[in-house]
């Protein structure tokens, strides 16, 4: 029965509690709400777009926990690097 339960539910309630807690605490500890993370994403897009063309849909922004510390890890696909003179001209 234990096997069937696990088969149907995927994981024990202990495991789901553990996983969900670990995720929610990353945000709690970094004191960053999903809204804040979204604003950070938009700001990043704006700043980086001055320098290169990026794929906005491909951006992955994550807070990763390592022991007690949290790192912001961003993966931002670059489609094209803008020419130097355009960048300087923008200022």
């Amino acid at each position: 029965m234990g096997f069937l339960n696990r088969f149907f539910q995927g994981e024990s309630s202990r495991q789901s509690a553990r996983k969900r807690l670990q995720l929610v605490l990353i945000h709690d500890r970094a004191d960053i709400s999903p809204e804040t993370l979204e604003r950070l994403r938009e700001d990043l897009i704006r700043v980086i777009s001055d320098y290169m063309v990026i794929s906005e849909d491909g951006i992955e922004l994550e807070l990763e926990r390592d022991g007690n510390s949290v790192a912001l890890v961003a993966s931002i696909p670059v489609l094209e690097v803008k020419r130097q003179r355009f960048r300087d001209g923008d200022r």
Binding site: G2, S12, S13, R14, Q15, A17, L21
Partner: peptide
């Protein structure tokens, strides 16, 4: 014992 509750070690791991 049946894995339905967070274990004591889970709690101390998570909270460090």
């Amino acid at each position: 014992r049946s894995g339905k509750m967070l274990g004591v070690s889970d709690v101390s791991d998570i909270l460090a």
